[in-house]
Amino acid sequence: MTEHPTAGIDETVHQRHRLGILTIAAEAKRVEFGYLKSTLELTAGNLSRHITVLEEAGLLEVEKGYDGKRPKTWVSITNKGREALAAEMAALRALLDRHDRG
């Protein structure tokens, strides 16, 4: 008997906004905090919490710096983050296939 697709779902990643953060980060070398905030339409506090969870899981790296005098926070995805995102996408597609067949 084949394993149910939900078995491939990681609770840290399987959250709409965290998936969004990982998807955006995977498309670039690095992404600025303000870009994530406006693209995902999140408050700064909410986004910060999601980033902390992903950083603690080793899926994201956070780099703080300055653009002139303005502080800027840049986020980049790790190899582990890419693998987790790929696994989550595969699990979602498998769920969709199962749903369509059933």
Partner: peptide, 17 residues
Amino acid sequence: DPKVLLEELSGLRKRVR
């Protein structure tokens, strides 16, 4: 709905690009 979620993520990917 995984279909809606996958579509949302695909839209995000296109926007970032």
